[in-house]
Nucleic acid binder design. Structure first.
Lengths: 170, 170
DNA sequence: AATTAATAATTGACTTTCTCAATGATATAG
DNA sequence: CTATATCATTGAGAAAGTCAATTATTAATT
């Protein structure tokens, strides 16, 4: 599990950068805050989703809509409620995300025959094609965000985050 | 979330839960999306900061204001620009965060003598006391969010995230 | 030294996201 | 069959994010 060594430390990395460019903030990396996993998680996701959103803009998608599309393509036929739970969003946010994707013909919304209150979201053929493109973009974005880690480290990170993300107390 | 011993898999966890409660979403854990580090990061931070915000509400703080306060207590005397860069926020957001903390007497805002354009943010004695309390709350929150990981795993995660958070491409 | 260009904080406008309560349709429990 | 719960939906209001313009100050150029 602990594949930490390898790679260059963030400090070494930044020391190599042209002084004064991203200046100032490395001083703050020695603070208590910078040691908090929650802070690091927040910063990593802010940078990562910022980049992904910029790169997905070509396809008229954001990380949010991409995520819904991805699950719609999964074959698991999620309901909107499940999408909300899984993506940590309010059900009303899912409504508008699905609205947009449905409007552009990427997904369909059908009443679940076993519980007609809930709507099953499924990708159309066009939606699956869009997902193929978007997925490549997201992989590229992720690769850039994770450039500091080698493949083994990425696997370690994935495993740890998975447990935090899905066994998150109370 | 009653201290789960060590590393129980998320799947085992949920399987043990009363069927139907958090039902449905474990089905989605097998999807491609659920394997994306960026997604896992986003979910982990959403759950984590949600919990931290709820727990900090007693102290009239949010993760945001707590983070500013923490850096103000660091001894590094950050400027607002540095806070913005470090916290991935717009400078105008820092203005209002500092406004609030200043209004309650937790921090001061002083022109930097070496560059009077920038304002140095420093915690007051009251601010440091507040930070002591808040810091304990945040540690407790973090402990709950990370209950799935043992101490060594947390260190590994911290190290990996630190590199992602501070060597984030381009 | 005078002018020009850049940077920090601030304000304000605007957009997007979040949070919640209410509603109608359907399902489940008593 | 009545009461209760759940799902999707709508809409309102709060919070957060984005961006351009302004002022004060500093740095760079002539």
């Amino acid at each position: 599990m602990s594949a930490q060594p390898t790679a260059v430390s963030a400090t070494q990395q930044r020391a190599a950068a042209p002084a004064g460019i991203s200046a100032g903030i490395e001083r703050l990396e020695a603070t208590e805050l910078a040691a908090e996993i929650e802070f690091l998680t927040a910063r990593a996701r802010s940078l990562g989703s910022g980049r992904a959103n910029r790169m997905l803009a070509d396809l008229d998608l954001k990380v949010r809509s991409y995520s819904v599309l991805s699950l719609a393509c999964s074959g698991e036929n999620p309901s909107q409620r499940e999408l909300a739970d899984f993506l940590s969003l309010d059900p009303s946010q899912i409504v508008s995300l699905v609205d947009q994707l449905e409007k552009r013909g990427a997904v369909t919304r059908e009443a679940d025959p076993r519980d007609r209150r809930s709507k099953v979201i499924t990708a159309t053929a066009a939606g699956r094609r869009l997902y193929q493109e978007a997925s490549a973009v997201v992989r590229e974005s992720e690769a850039r965000s994770l450039r500091a880690l080698d493949e083994a480290e990425r696997e370690t990170l994935r495993g740890l985050l998975r447990r935090v993300a899905f066994d998150n107390g109370d």
